[in-house]
Amino acid sequence: MNTNRRNFIKTTLLGTTGLFFSFYLGKKYFNSLAASKIEIPDLKIIIISIADTIIPTDETPGAEESNIYEHIKYVSDNVLSDSEKSKLIAGLLEIINIADNQFGKPFQNCSSEQKLTILYNLQASSIKNKTLNKIRHKMFGKNFIEIMKSLTIECYATSEMGCKNFFQYDFIPVNYQPSITIDENHHAWATK
């Protein structure tokens, strides 16, 4: 990342425009402007921090260990459309703003509870009705939090660590048992 770009982010995100961001439309406007200049590598820390909030470390590893940043970088570079990529970057910037506005510090420095609060609030702001969601998806695609959640989950679930240590993974089953009895602690198969 070059110095100018770093300065731009620092100045823009934490600087003098804080009040401006409290206005929703203004914030959107800012994000679209900022997103046009900022790239995914500039946001590595926030990506990992959000993903590790979505899937945190407990008795099993969290999303960071599934190489989430590399996955999102690849998808962003090779799969997402320009508008999806802008939406992703704008959403990441929005979280930076929210953390700063609400808790006065970068997202990655927030407590687990604070991070969860930010993500839950963001999720709650999208439409919850299933039918309306379908219409929204059809017209506008997934929103930021849906994109971030699905990329985090898929990366985790298809990683070697996720398949082998979190789910059950059977590379060559050899036989098919159509009905086995399981208890409530049984883990799902990683693959279909």
Binding site: F166, F167, T191
Partner: peptide
Amino acid sequence: ERQNWINKDIQAIGKELKNELRKP
């Protein structure tokens, strides 16, 4: 078949999400 992570629609985030993901 039973749904797995790919077609579950889970609203939870964090540990609760992990728990739900892991169940058939």
